[in-house]
Design a protein around this nucleic acid. Sequence first.
DNA 1: TTTTGGGTGAACAATTTGTAAAAACGAAGG
DNA 2: CCTTCGTTTTTACAAATTGTTCACCCAAAA
Lengths: 229, 229
Amino acid sequence: MAKTVLIVEDDNNIADLLRLYLEKEGYEVSIAPDGLKGVKQFRELQPALVLLDVMLPGMDGWGVCRTIRAESKTPIIMLTAKSETEDKVQGLKTGADDYITKPFEMKEVLARIEAVLRRSGIEPEKASRKLVFDKLVIDMDAFELTVDGKKIPTPPKEMELLYHLASTPNRVYTRNQLLDEVWGFDYFGDTRTVDVHVKRLREKLEGVSDQWELKTVWSVGYKFEVAGR
Amino acid sequence: MAKTVLIVEDDNNIADLLRLYLEKEGYEVSIAPDGLKGVKQFRELQPALVLLDVMLPGMDGWGVCRTIRAESKTPIIMLTAKSETEDKVQGLKTGADDYITKPFEMKEVLARIEAVLRRSGIEPEKASRKLVFDKLVIDMDAFELTVDGKKIPTPPKEMELLYHLASTPNRVYTRNQLLDEVWGFDYFGDTRTVDVHVKRLREKLEGVSDQWELKTVWSVGYKFEVAGR
DNA sequence: TTTTGGGTGAACAATTTGTAAAAACGAAGG
DNA sequence: CCTTCGTTTTTACAAATTGTTCACCCAAAA
C-alpha cells in the first residue's frame, strides 16, 4: 500500500522532476499547480505528506500550510527559494514540519521525506534503494557499488547515474533527460558530461557479466540493457 | 529491571543461540533442557515469558504448556519443527500465545516476543540503548563510551551522533539528516557542525579496530561502516 | 565518402572535506 | 549577576576528491 505525496508547485519542471523521483521510490504522487487546488486535492486525497512550494499563484504556501494545519496533522515540507532564517521561523510558526531550500537535490528531498514520516510515527515507505543484477549490486543506502562480490569505490555522480539508468532497465534516456534527472533541473552544462561518466562506469563494469550492459543508443542516448526482461 | 525469559529446549545449539540474542536485547535468560526441569524452573523463576520447544525428552511441549497454563497466564511461545495446521490448532487449544516454526530467524523471534508481551499488557523490555561492536561499546543508558575496554569520556552530542550512526551500520546519512535526527528538526545551524563532531569521534576511535570505521561518503555524508554485514 | 555522433585522455575547474583555532553558549557555583 | 569551565558551533583555509570541458580520433549512418 503506497503512501501518497501531494506536491503543490506551479513550476512544471520541478513538479515533474519530483514526481519522477518519488514514483521511482514507490510513492503515489499527485500534483496541484496552485494553492487553492492544493487545498482541494489535499481534502480529497488525504495524502501521507505534502510538499509545498512557498511561492504560488493564488493562495501562497503559508496560507495553504495554515489551512491544512487547521484541519489535519499531515506532515508538510515547505520548498523555499531563500534559506533565510526568517523563512524558517515563519515556516515553523505556520506549522510546517521541515523545509527545503531550492535548488535542492533529490537525495535531500527523499531523506527529508523519510525523516519527517518517521518523526510523525508514520512508517516511511521503505523502498529499498538497492538494485541487484547478476554480479552487480547498486546499493544507494550504503552508497556502495559491488561488482562480482568486490566493493568498487565509485564517485557519487557515477553512482546516481548508474542507479538511475538501472532502475528502469532497457529504457533509453537522452543525455538531456539524464542531466535533468540526475544532475538536477537547474543544471546547465555540456551534454558530453554524461558521456564521460558513462565511460568511467564502463571501465568499472567491463566484462563482468553478459547479463547486462551499459549500452549506447546511437543518436539518442544510453540505456542499461538487461538480458531476458 | 530486566524481564526473564525461560527457554525450554533440549538442543544446546539452539538454546545458546537464543540466549545470546535475548541477553543482547537486555533480557535475563534461563534454559531448561527438558520438560520436567522446564516446569520446575518456571515455578522458581516466574519468568515474563516462556519459549517452549514442542519436541522434548520427558514431558513434551504440549504437556509443559498445559501444566503452565493451569497455574499461570504467563505468555508462551511454542517452537515447532513443522508448520502443520495440526500443530497450530493443537497449540492454540493448549493455550500457547504464539508459535514459531523452525528454522527461525532471530529477528523474528524478537519481534514475536515483543508482540506477545505487548499483547499480554506486559511492557516489553524497552530496546536496550546499548550497541556493541568489536572493542566498542556505545551505552546510551549509562551515557558511556567504552573503547577497547577503557571508558572514554565523551560529550553528549558526540555520543548521540555515534549512536545514531551506529544503530544502522553501513547506512549513509546526509549531514542534514543527521542535523534533523540528532540535533532536532528545528535546529538552525551549519552542516559543518557535523564534520567537527565526526572529527572528534574519530580521534577517540582511531585505530581501535578494523572491524568498523566512521567513513566519509564524498558529497553525501557519513556512515558507520562495519565489516562483513 | 561524407556527415554526424560518440569514445577517450588529460587538463582544468569546482566542490567537498579535514582541521585547527576562535567564538559562542550554557550550566554550576560564587 | 558575574565568572568559570566544558561543550558546541562557527569560521577560515588547506587538502583531497570529483566534475567538466576540450580536442582529437574513431564509428556509425546515409
